[in-house]
Amino acid sequence: MTTTHDAPPAYEPLPEDADLWTAKIRRKLVRALPPDRMVPDRQPAYLSSWIYIFGALTMSALAVVIITGTLLALEGPAWWHLSTVGLFVNSLHLWSVELFFFFMVIHLWGKFFMAAWRGNRTLTWMTGVITFMASIGAGLTGYLSQTNFESQWIATQAKDGINAIGAGAFFNVLNFGQMLMWHIMILPLAVVALTVLHILLVRTKGIVPPFEIASPEGGAHADATAETAGVEG
């Protein structure tokens, strides 16, 4: 089987349907996100380093963060102070967050030293940086949602920095309800949406090739023009 679909379509798309919005959206989607590019079986031979797994490790940690956060949400923000099960779930949430940042920063270092923005991958880099920033916000609001001494301390300290840039007027770190909403609704949505966008960009563009150096067959490609550049894969 050479087809990338499991099941054959119930009908062949008909030419007279081509103007339907649905058909147009489908054509656009298939063109923008071809399935064999999204979930490929093969990768370029230069993928040969453990540094490549840190994206997947970051994503995995994010999944654990969201699962454990959902478990905490089931019983509410004060549960973990009162229950040993709750405390353990809180521990799972804390350590998955520590690992999430741990892997994400190593992923960032790796991509930096590979200059992974080359070949029209600027947006991939930028979505990564914004995801990092949104995650820091999620981390901060998480600490503020603990409802313990650490929340009190961080809230009363962080207010000065956030007030100083004028943001404190509408982002009040002393307002627990507001911070909890940001932590369990707004920022997770942002981090997950940004991550999905980031991964779609990675899959669409493919992984960045190594820097060109003199190859056995000939000279460096220093005289190549940008016409061919960036259309790799």
Partner: peptide, 12 residues
């Protein structure tokens, strides 16, 4: 910029 990858692909 990069040049298009013309080398080998491996199962991954």
């Amino acid at each position: 910029d990069v040049n298009p990858w013309k080398g080998a692909y491996r199962p991954y």
